[in-house]
Amino acid sequence: MNIFRLVADLMHLGSILILLLKMFTSRSCAGISFKTQALYLIVFVTRYLDLFTHFVSVYNTFMKIFFISSAGYILYMMRVPLKDTYNKHLDAFRWEFLLGGAGVLALVFTHKYTVIETLWTYSIFLEMMAILPQLLQLQRTGEAETITTHYLFALGAYRALYIVNWIYRYETEHHVDAISTMAGIVQTALYCDFFYVYFTRVLKGKRFKLP
């Protein structure tokens, strides 16, 4: 564990807490993509199957359980108590392509053809693209509530810090995982446009609005 990874994980944890705060305070899930949230649940469940086979640390186990359960709870919130505030028409990304595409990539690139290993690889490729429905929704609306942009910023920062963590691990432990690194760079690149608007508008106290 290094400082970059620790801060990244805490940003990830923080992003989920911000999302829950948004839902609780505004009693609404407007602006949030159900598809992206559902993809994250699939990502966590397929990646953390090793909860049952491989113990890393109490920290690691706690975080895995938190990510799976919070993702499930968010879906429940969006489907049951906040159902009326969800706009299906704005959440129009064809996510079948993401689910299928990640499957193909996993079968091609997996390190080993075992169930756990292939599902792990699937989760990496699915996470790489899971934010796309959310970004499409943002593009369609052209603007977003400030708290939603803080959520997205924390999520993007978590990904960016993981890249720094891999560079650090490469320097210190000579560890590198080509799949994680490649997918992580693509995933972080998807946030570029968002980061630009976030830094030039939201951090200067203005509303998030696409040009």
């Binding site: 491989h54 640390s57 690691n60 895995k64 390190h111 792990w120 993981y162 799949i179």
Partner: peptide
């Protein structure tokens, strides 16, 4: 390389 090196990550 079996890819398990980084599986202590989340």
């Amino acid at each position: 390389q079996d890819g398990h090196q980084l599986k202590d990550e989340l």
